[in-house]
Write a protein that binds this DNA or RNA. Structure first.
Lengths: 184, 184
DNA sequence: TCAGACATGTAACAAGTTACATGATTAC
DNA sequence: GTAATCATGTAACTTGTTACATGTCTGA
């Protein structure tokens, strides 16, 4: 149940239309909560019905015409309550770790190439985050908002760093393995 | 599309019934791919229909009576193909990072307590993994299977370590913050 | 015999994904 | 006027979650 809260956060930062939100989810917000435009439109509808947001008054908001939303007090209250709510961390779901386990059973054919490909992707992502860090969080700026947003970015950076480390470790290990598939 | 492959892996390691699988998902496999018994039964049905697994011959497998499955050659082939297939990493979805970003907008009320709670949970999980590591991967054992399964566990350990580090960092930062909510 | 554990399953729903449909605006 | 882009939306489907229903087996 986090998508509505992601949208509320984004709209509080800046009232936007569905497509603008989609674009912002492709960038910053989507770095830790991704969503497609279909999900976003569906959720905007629900949030509006629930009275948490409203469409900004505009000419005639028909199909094809831009419709921007802003957060209502009830929406801000809902988000505020959610920030401190007890909610257990969801168990990890990593297809890559799963594939490694499967490889232990049926042999690693092809997995090394995949690992190398993922390594490159994570390195790219890390580079992107580090660029954002340099640009948006130079030493010195330290308002409360800045620090918290910097923490979020640090999370992304450290996660990518973890993956790069693990994949490197995995590749090292697998290179030392005999070529034949692991038999039971 | 990983649940079927998680099940195939588990069944190759050891033919099992639905409930046994559920138990194994609560432990080892579920550490990186969780599933409830309802998901598992549904998926077992599909895999059987697809001819990838079959029920082991048994008395009369009616409702309420144990029904064990084993993997057929087609199932092993499917899993083998999947291990090396190109499949991009899924974007991260972290409610905790999202809550931090929301806190930057509506203020951090309650978030610190949540962070402390999560910190404790992650520390517990890490301790559990480290116990498993000691028990199952003592220095010396180094078959190909062992090494790959050890890598998977290392992934879990390093991920928990990442979270512990990040949350600690976050708590440090937030303790230095002024008490008032972050205004826009 | 009946309580409790074991075991499989249904149903309804929520969330996420994929493909496509429709209308408005702009630039040529 | 028509192609490209902007913008909102529907529909169908898959995956994951929650609550509950049903049958079997074991031991007190």
């Amino acid at each position: 149940m986090s998508l509505p809260h992601a949208i509320l956060t984004a709209l509080l930062e800046k009232p936007s239309s569905g497509l603008e939100l989609t674009r912002r989810f492709d960038k910053s917000i989507g770095y830790f909560w991704s969503a497609t435009h279909q999900q976003i439109y569906r959720e905007l509808g629900k949030l509006e019905d629930a009275g948490l947001i409203r469409a900004l008054p505009s000419p005639q908001p028909t199909r094809g015409q831009r419709k921007a939303y802003e957060v209502l007090p009830a929406g801000r209250a809902e988000l505020t309550a959610w920030v401190g709510k007890e909610e257990d961390p969801k168990p990890i779901r990593s297809a890559l770790l799963l594939r490694m386990r499967a490889a232990a059973v049926v042999g690693p054919q092809g997995l090394q190439a995949e690992l190398r490909r993922h390594l490159a992707l994570h390195q790219e992502q890390l580079a992107e985050y580090e660029q954002i860090e340099e640009r948006d969080f130079p030493a010195g700026r330290d308002g409360a908002q800045d620090r918290m947003r910097h923490l979020v970015l640090r999370g992304g950076i450290e996660l990518e760093t973890f993956w790069i480390g693990w994949i490197t470790e995995a590749l090292d290990t697998m290179e030392q393995l005999p070529k034949s598939p692991a038999g039971d």
